[in-house]
Every structure is written in C-alpha cells, then in structure tokens.
Write a protein that binds this DNA or RNA. Structure first.
Lengths: 241, 241
DNA sequence: GCAAGGCGCGTACGGTGTGCGCTAACCTGA
DNA sequence: TCAGGTTAGCGCACACCGTACGCGCCTTGC
C-alpha cells in the first residue's frame, strides 16, 4: 500500500506551502560547497547533491545548465570569501600584497578541492566575485606604482605562485585526509618509503631530515612565506628601477 | 558461422606467436599519452584505451592497478622529456634556471592535460623521472649557492610559479582548442563579451586593449618571462645577502 | 475562472571504473 | 614428453555517472 505516488491534491498532504519549497541557485551552490568541503571533488555528483536537497538530480537542471556551470558558480561563490586590502600608496603596498596572497592561500586550503579549479578561472570564468577580486588586486598593484602595461603581469606573477603552491598543498592535504591520519603521523609513516626511494638521489633527503621534529604545518607556512618574500622582493626591485 | 569464438588450438589459426602479442606497461602508457594529447584528459577512459590497443578494457588491469596509477605512470613518463641543465657555479645559475623553467612550461603546454596533475606530483608521486628532475633542480640551486635549508624553498618557489602559470595557460588553450578556432580568432571573438562584463571594473580592460594587435602567443611568452625574471631577481637578491 | 508557464520528477540512454571467474596459453621441473 | 602451476586476456556484471525528454502539478496573470 504505497502512499508515495502522490495522491492528487488532498489538503491534508499539502501543508499550505507548496509541499516542496522552491529550489534556488543559491541553495544548490551552498549545498554543493558543503558536499565538496566534506567529501572532496570526486564525491560531488548531481544525484548526491539532489539527495542532500531532498530533490531529484534532474531538478537541479532547472537552475543550473550543467555540472560545469555549477562548478563555475561554486568557484565564484568561494571567491566571495576574499577581501582584498586597499593600498593607499607605495608605502603599504607590500603589506597589502602579502595579506592578499596569504588570504588567497588560506582560502584554497579551507576548500582544498578548489585549487585545481582556480587555475582555470582566469579568463574563462567571469563571475562577479572573480572579477571583483581581480579588479581589486589590480588596484593594489596600481597603487604600488606599477605602470599600466606592467600591473597585469605583476599580478599574474603573484597569482601564479599562490595558485601553484596551493594546488600542491591541497593535493597533499587531501591525500592525507583520505588516509585518516594527521599530517604529523603521515609524514612519519612515509619517511621510510621516502628514504628508500631517494637512496640514489641523496639531495632529496637533506632538506627534510634537518627539521624532522618541526610541525609540518609550520614548515608549509614558512615555505610559502619564503617564496612570497622573494617574489615581492623581485617585484619591489622592479618598482625602484 | 562466426569464427570469432576462438577455435581451440589449430596450428593454422595460431601463427607461431601467441596470436595476441603481450600487452606491456610501456605500451599502455604510450597509448594513453597519445590519447591524452589527441583528445584531452576527460576523453581518456579505460575502454577507449583498450580499443586503441586492440584489447579489452579489463585486460589493462593486469599491468596497471587502476586509472590513478596509470596517470601517475603517464606523468612520470612525460617528466622524462625534461633535461635539466647543469650549473657549474653561481655564474651561470640564472641562465640554467631560466632554461629549466622555460622547458618545464613548454612541456606542460605540449601536453596541456598534464598541468593540473603536475601540482599533485610533488611528494605523492615518486616515479624515477619525477625524482630525477627534482634532484637535478636541487643540484642547480645548490650550485647557485643556496644553503642547505634554503635550496628546497628556492626550488619550490620557482616550481610553484611555473606550475601555476602553466595550469592557467593550459586550461585556456584547451578551451580554445575545443572551440575549434585559433587563439587570435578566439581572442577577437571574446572581446565584446569581455568588454561588456568588465564595464564596472574598468581596470580589467586597460591591460588588454593596449596590445590588441599583438600575437597572443607572444603575449603569453612575454608574461611568463616577466614573472620569471622578477622571481629570479628576488632569489638572486637573497643569494647576495 | 481560466490559460500559460515554470518547476519537480520518473524514466531512460549511453557512458564510466573495475571485481570476478573462466579459458587458454606459457613456463617449469621431472 | 608430459603434467602442473602460473599468468594474461576477456566477457560479464555491478554500481555509479551526467543529462535529455516529456509528463503533470502548481503558481501566477488576466
């Protein structure tokens, strides 16, 4: 006696509201982000997303053209988390750029699945948040004193660095997360395998063994800061010339 | 009267050699690279790959644990295309680093599907070519004069930049390739849409409109070289200090 | 009160990665 | 030379995937 097949329109089964409140784009994007954060990019399927919203998979297509477009919306939504500082002039440019780059990396590590998508978002995604962030970053380099032909390149350099490093870190962290261990445990577990494999490439070992007892998360933070400083040094030198 | 179902062992149907020459890992990897170069990463399926090798999809699993492992092998194979120059000392370090970075970018643009994978190949992939390249790059930074604790970081900075920029470029070029136009045509086609979308972000337009008639490929080359020079400037400054 | 349009959904199609167990060919040792 | 064990290729099947299509309900505008 399945009641499921939806009896016509009995007032009793329909609680005033349309029984199934409207699906919205915002809802869908938000649920997709939840799912992505919780289970990663390969776990996101239209069916699972539908289930999470108490809807059929195909219902989503009324609000989103296809899965690729959904990912574009999702990426743009995440860009909304970013607040790019305003530089008042060359004096505080460097601090502002450091903060912007640090925030961008932090954003990518909060949502590790986003890193590979970030690279693709340059010219091809034109969502409002993506464009706002680009524009604000450009303003930052403009305030720094970069001439019109160079501010794009300077921004591109910084962005490429952050995206590159975040992609690597995110992949590494996802791997660890899937293994169910903490980062420290994982590093310790992998050492023998790593040592054995690097037997004929002794150079690969040196760096790591020196700081065997340092918190791996701090190492990553410091590595990022090191590269960022070098790049800002290089850009600053260009400004002075 | 289908002869297909493999008559027992008649000497006539079996031409001395085992009728179906052995599948090998190398063959599979080579065919996968062909397929990836020709049709991109989302077109690579075990079934298609099997067809290309006149084999059933499941036969591949005798030589490769799963698709992810296949991709690891493929990435390492591509790394084999790289030849990292040797730096004899601080004097020619910069030229060597420039060549290594340029070659790495060229490799990624020859095989656009590889860029997103590159980021993930850091610590998690330990193939022979990947490790050789890492080791040779480290040697390069060592010859430059970076102390032991810093050469890893210096290398990481450069690699992150190249991977970041190559990921963006590869995504952009793949998009264009799928559209069937040349890069120049595509850029021209997109301009109206781009202008409209950037109406409220005028800064986004400036950079592009100045060099409207320059070959877009040259622009990308120059942009890459610009960032590379800034980063090497920053690293060199560190060496001097 | 009625027509029209939007929306959710069931069904279905053509794909995907890959586990399982069969068969036939090969290699080994006696 | 032959028996036995090991291996490689394969057909089948399963559980999933993205998404096109068309039905029927509900809401809205008149």
């Amino acid at each position: 006696m399945p009641v499921d097949p939806k009896v016509p329109g009995s007032v009793w089964t329909r609680p005033g509201r349309p029984q199934r409140e409207q699906l919205t784009r915002e809802q869908i994007v938000a649920a997709a982000i939840e799912l992505l954060d919780a289970e990663g990019v390969e776990a996101l399927s239209m069916r699972k997303l539908g289930t999470r919203l108490d809807a059929a998979a195909t219902s989503l297509y009324r609000h989103v053209a296809n899965k690729d477009e959904l990912m574009e919306l999702v990426v743009d939504d995440i860009y909304g988390e970013l607040e790019i500082p305003v530089a008042d002039g060359p004096a505080d440019w460097r601090a502002a750029a450091t903060r912007a780059a640090t925030d961008l990396r932090a954003m990518a590590l909060r949502h590790p699945w986003i890193a590979p998508e970030l690279g693709q978002a340059g010219l091809t995604h034109v969502g409002p948040n993506t464009m706002r962030v680009s524009s604000e970053l450009l303003a930052l380099f403009e305030a720094a004193g970069f001439p019109a032909q160079e501010k794009d390149r300077a921004m591109g350099t910084l962005m490429a660095y952050v995206i590159g490093i975040a992609t690597s870190e995110a992949a590494y962290l996802s791997l660890i997360a899937r293994s169910g261990r903490t980062e420290r445990e994982w590093v310790a577990d992998q050492r023998p395998r790593f040592d054995a494999a690097s037997e004929e490439h002794p150079r690969l070992r040196e760096g790591g063994s020196a700081q065997q007892d340092v918190d791996p998360e701090k190492i990553r933070d410091d590595d990022f800061a090191y590269g960022l400083d070098r790049i800002l040094d290089g850009l600053a030198a260009r400004l002075d010339a």
